[in-house]
Every structure is written in C-alpha cells, then in structure tokens.
Simulated assay, not measured.
Amino acid sequence: MGAKRLAAVLVTALLAGCAPATAATGGPVPARRAPEGTYAVGVRTFTLDPGSARPLAVTVWYPAEGRAVAPGRFPVVVYSHGLDSLPVLHSGLTTRWAAAGFVVAAPAYPHTRRGAAHFTRADVRHQPADGWRVIRHLVRLDGRPGDPLAGHLDVTRFAAAGHSAGGFTTAGMFTSGRSPRLRSGVVIAGGGLAGSFAGPAAPMLFVHGTADAVVPVTVGRAAYDRTPGPAAFLSLLGQGHGEYLTPGRPGFAQVLATTTDFLRWTLYDDPTAARRLPTDAHNPALTHYTARHTP
C-alpha cells in the first residue's frame, strides 16, 4: 500500500468511529517470574491536571488484597480507549490484566471520550502526549507518602495498550527519544501514527479482526511491517472491530491469553510466558498468529 493510500485509509478509519463492538528512568531490574494464580482487583479514579486545558480522568485497576493494594511492586499498563468510548467499556480485558499482576491505568481522553463536550477525532494526535503525562504522574505518585499505590508501582516497567484510536495512540507513544520506561506495546484494531516505532526497538503485539470494516486489517499489517524489533500479529478470522474484546465472545479467550502472556514476557521478563505465545491463541477456526524475532 502506498503512503498516500495508507494515509487515506487511516483517516477514513478514524472518522468511522472506534468504540468497541460492545459495550524515573532506572537501571535494569532483575528478571523474575510473573505471579502465578490471580489477585482480587481493586479500582480507584483520579483526575490528572484538573485545572488544565486537558484534564484527564484516570481509572486504575490494581492487584488487591482485601481493601488494600496487594504486597509487592507491579508493572503498569497504560490503556487507551477508542473514539466515543470510556475506560470502563474495556474492563473485561483490563480487570483480568490486573488480576494477573499488573496495574492498569486508563485515561478518558478529553476530546474523544464518550460524552465529551467538544468531541473531535482530530485530537487523537495529541493523545500520545497524554499517555506520557499519565506515566510521569504515576512515577511521582509511587514516591508520594500516604498514597495507596506508593511503593507498589514498578516504575521501570511500563507498557502501552489500546483499541482502535487508542491503538493509534499507543503506537504514537513509541517515538524517538522516549523514556526506556516504556518497554512494550499492544495495538488492538489500530495502526501507526506519524513518528511511530522510532527510537529503540520495543516488542509490539498487534491484534486485529480480518473483517474489520472500521480500521482495515491492512492498516494493522502495515504498522506491524514498520516495527523494527520483536513483533507478533494475532488475526481474529472473520471478525470485525472489537467483538473479540467481550468476555464470552469467540476469540476473547485467545486474545486474553496472548496479551497477558505478552505482558508477562515483556514486563516481568518471564521466559515461560514467552514460550507460550505461539500456542496461547491456537484455534485454527478463530485465529492466526505470526511473529518475528520473538522467543
């Protein structure tokens, strides 16, 4: 696909709408095995920069023990919603990541969220910077005495993930000169933005329905082909723009297993999770998985 054609497809896809079909730079941290079993999940909300021109309401899901954050430090996933959507509409996936041992922080973007007073699709290009604001805030929060999450965030290990416009937002966070805190990305039904996938190579996972009429699978494949480092592509055969993100729907189990083990591999350096990736999604009637430069 030529550059002009790809740009036209990206614009068309974003204009079509992107809600789901339903509803401290630090040194290297020693490798460790991801938690086994599951945690209870807690949730909190806060507003980042409430008096600014771009306030961000952020929902955070975290591993819990009773009413408190579970003992330990947990890697963080910044999750970005699509157009006319909200973080809570993605909780089927995000709460399960939290149960697996990740803190998930999901901003509601000021001009693309559902119910925005001044909704505009063009604001997607500003959202990668919002994602970085969330990361910087969480780094500060981890050292803030008295905050329930203080001391529980592994601020050397972040991933970015998102659906549709949130997938484009995720790709846009991987630019030249970014902090090494951001270690990996999951792009669901999305593609690249200008400047994406520059700088140090980072593992990327793409998830896409082959019959997606909003963001064609060719857009996701083009972004996959541009990534310089380890990358994998999970195709949902015959599926559209996001029905596979709904618990109980065909493909959800495979998407959950693959994304969770990808995060375990890239944020916990868990080699057993990396070895499971080719089989996590194996269902010839539902999925197809390809990868390059991954274990």
Rank of each mutant, 00 (worst) to 15 (best):
residue 195 G to L: 06
residue 179 S to F: 04
residue 201 A to S: 12
residue 231 A to K: 15
residue 171 A to R: 04
residue 163 H to N: 10
residue 120 T to K: 09
residue 46 F to W: 08
residue 180 P to G: 07
residue 136 R to C: 05
residue 229 G to D: 00
residue 102 F to S: 10
residue 290 T to F: 01
residue 173 M to G: 00
residue 265 W to K: 02
residue 242 G to D: 04
residue 79 Y to R: 02
residue 53 A to K: 10
residue 219 V to Q: 11
residue 99 A to K: 02
residue 88 V to H: 06
residue 250 P to Y: 03
residue 240 G to Y: 10
residue 275 R to D: 08
residue 38 T to L: 11
residue 151 G to H: 10
residue 103 V to G: 05
residue 111 H to Q: 14
residue 198 A to E: 15
residue 295 P to A: 08
residue 84 D to F: 02
residue 189 A to E: 15
residue 35 P to L: 05
residue 271 P to G: 11
residue 167 G to R: 04
residue 131 G to S: 14
residue 143 G to R: 15
residue 192 G to F: 06
residue 199 G to K: 05
residue 173 M to R: 05
residue 274 A to S: 12
residue 255 V to A: 07
residue 142 D to H: 03
residue 22 T to H: 14
residue 168 F to I: 03
residue 169 T to N: 11
residue 177 G to W: 11
residue 279 T to L: 15
residue 71 P to E: 11
residue 68 A to G: 09
residue 228 P to I: 03
residue 173 M to A: 00
residue 127 Q to C: 11
residue 209 G to R: 14
residue 79 Y to Q: 07
residue 182 L to K: 05
residue 172 G to A: 02
residue 73 R to T: 13
residue 295 P to D: 03
residue 207 V to S: 09
residue 16 A to D: 12
residue 233 F to H: 03
residue 106 A to T: 06
residue 260 T to F: 09
residue 276 R to N: 12
residue 211 A to M: 10
residue 176 S to W: 09
residue 77 V to F: 06
residue 215 V to G: 01
residue 293 H to N: 15
residue 96 R to A: 15
residue 236 L to Q: 12
residue 163 H to W: 11
residue 255 V to E: 04
residue 256 L to T: 07
residue 220 G to M: 07
residue 14 L to Q: 14
residue 83 L to D: 00
residue 135 I to C: 07
residue 144 R to P: 01
residue 232 A to V: 03
residue 148 P to C: 10
residue 276 R to M: 06
residue 232 A to E: 04
residue 106 A to D: 06
residue 168 F to M: 08
residue 230 P to N: 04
residue 291 A to L: 05
residue 78 V to P: 02
residue 94 T to D: 00
residue 54 R to T: 14
residue 141 L to E: 10
residue 76 V to G: 05
residue 147 D to Y: 05
residue 7 A to T: 12
residue 37 G to Y: 06
residue 11 V to E: 15
residue 166 G to M: 10
residue 267 L to F: 06
residue 284 P to L: 09
residue 114 R to F: 13
residue 48 L to K: 06
residue 61 W to S: 11
residue 284 P to V: 14
residue 12 T to P: 00
residue 208 H to Q: 12
residue 85 S to T: 04
residue 225 D to W: 00
residue 137 H to S: 04
residue 249 R to H: 14
residue 5 R to A: 15
residue 172 G to P: 08
residue 139 V to R: 15
residue 112 T to E: 04
residue 61 W to M: 01
residue 294 T to M: 13
residue 273 A to R: 05
residue 279 T to A: 15
residue 160 A to L: 12
residue 210 T to L: 11
residue 80 S to G: 08
residue 273 A to E: 03
residue 244 Y to N: 11
residue 168 F to T: 02
residue 42 G to H: 08
residue 16 A to E: 09
residue 26 G to R: 14
residue 92 G to C: 06
residue 221 R to P: 03
residue 265 W to P: 00
residue 22 T to P: 08
residue 279 T to F: 11
residue 130 D to W: 00
